[in-house]
Design a protein around this nucleic acid. Structure first.
Lengths: 272, 272
DNA sequence: CGACGTGTTGATCTCTCTCAATTAGAGTGG
DNA sequence: CCACTCTAATTGAGAGAGATCAACACGTCG
């Protein structure tokens, strides 16, 4: 499973440090040279701003697939940024029922929700091998203090992540199993595709390190029902998951299933 | 329904403006004199910071119960702060299915999620009569620019609101109807109680302007099943809803129903 | 080679939804 | 003051989407 998001060339795992909890330190990449900067998704920052970020960055670590990045209830967890790979945030009830809150892809923050000093209200786990940039714990505050533009960006990113959770809540609360799965596939496909501009997703699909259990936990479904619904969509020729890659064969149809009548626009209802 | 959160004394509705869309302008209250400042919930801000907030504040408006504050898809909605009353954020599917994302109480932001210029990804509606402070649209940015401490506070508040949605998602995805309702009652009770320090909630309960339809839409349940479950809990003597007020008669039991084995602590599972 | 993780499928079972009908209170108009 | 209407709450009955239980296939790995 850990080979669907190959580690970047600039990362090496020092075998001596292999046993370390929470990940392995890897070759440092300056924020200037950050591969994410090239993506259209990311706004370009002034050199001065990059310097601020750089000054707050401590190191880079690798966490292997399926290992924990932040434990539920952990206090004083550092602030991370996801440089490559997939992860997810989750919460569990005491009897083990788990809900995945959202999936994290390259560029996402890990751990902003946490008030420094507090216990993390959710866990974070790696889905594939993952490279994280580690920032000092008060980085969010320092960012605000020394670069308002970046502080604003953090606020906006946080708000944006919330709106992803909002979307999932809409799905889990009001969509049928088939609709939920169709929606999730489309959303994850688009997010993943945006990170690898230029490749022919039609032919190659996108990396997809989730197991069916992850899909189930992300959508509030049972594993069995997730499997059956997934197969149904697959047999209809809408998608294919193979070798850790997701291929969407009929995005239009999947989108329509996700929101039958509306093309993504909200309902036209009498405005009170 | 609109009498459960009586308007503060300092608010008057000019009858001349009664027809205005989106609310009625009311007597201005300076941020210095803001009644919310007295609450233990809110950290005290320096006079200089208050001045910044004050300078961004435009007016105050009243929106009546059940009226829309921000329409789904509305663009250029202003930034509000909820001064008193209850509201909720929601999303709807094109066929009308509605999911309430979270409930808003005094002190909450309304509309930070929205990137200025963009369409609002969710609607906001008043549950009771509501008083809102209206801020200029770029207030979030101005706050960051001129008062980093406040900018940081906004980030934190946004993150905090997300964690409320996280909690709901856990409920909707993984809890039974009974567990969901028990959890919601406890959470809303506590939030409401924190806003009226000193009163004997044991005797008086807290204001509770939700209809059963709101509870259903907030928990991903049908109206009928919500009613039946609510009655079941009520018959067991755990709570009472009467005259727009919620009384919790057995918080302990309700909490236990919400998370059977854990007292709010996350599960003790083998840490991978 | 056996243990394990993941995916698959069939057979029940049940929680929750949908449909229907009734009650109670608030507001309106004659 | 009394029909009439509307909304919110309630309750029963039947249907169904999705959960649970069980078994099996397949590939990887120590």
């Amino acid at each position: 499973m850990s080979n669907d998001t190959p580690l970047p060339d600039n990362v090496s795992i020092p075998s001596a440090a292999a046993g370390r909890v929470g990940g392995v330190t890897v070759k440092y990449v300056s924020c200037q040279a950050c591969p994410l900067r090239a993506l259209p998704l990311f706004t370009d920052h002034a050199p001065a701003e990059l310097a601020v970020i750089e000054s707050l960055k401590r190191e880079q670590i690798v966490v292997q697939a399926d290992r924990s990045i932040i434990h539920e209830g952990q206090s004083n967890a550092p602030l991370y940024t996801l440089l490559s790979g997939w992860a997810f945030r989750f919460k569990t009830l005491s009897d083990g029922r788990r809900q995945i809150l959202n999936f994290l892809l390259a560029g996402d923050f890990v751990g902003v929700q946490q008030k420094m000093g507090d216990a993390s209200p959710h866990g974070v786990q790696a889905l594939s091998d993952v490279v994280l940039c580690v920032f000092q714990r008060d980085a969010v505050w320092e960012l605000h203090r020394s670069a308002p533009t970046l502080g604003f960006a953090v606020t906006w990113l946080t708000a944006h992540e919330e709106s992803l959770v909002d979307d999932t809540l809409l799905s889990v609360g009001r969509r049928s199993a088939e609709e939920r799965i169709a929606t999730l596939l489309v959303v994850l496909f688009k997010r993943a595709a945006a990170l690898i501009p230029g490749i022919d997703t039609q032919q190659l699909g996108v990396p997809f390190p989730l197991t069916q259990q992850h899909i189930a936990d992300g959508l509030g479904l049972s594993l069995v029902h997730t499997n059956k619904t997934l197969r149904k969509l697959e047999r209809r020729g809408l998608h294919r998951i193979e070798d850790g890659r997701l291929h969407l064969l009929d995005v239009r149809a999947l989108t329509r299933i996700g929101d039958p009548y509306g093309d993504g626009k909200p309902a036209q209802r009498p405005l009170i």
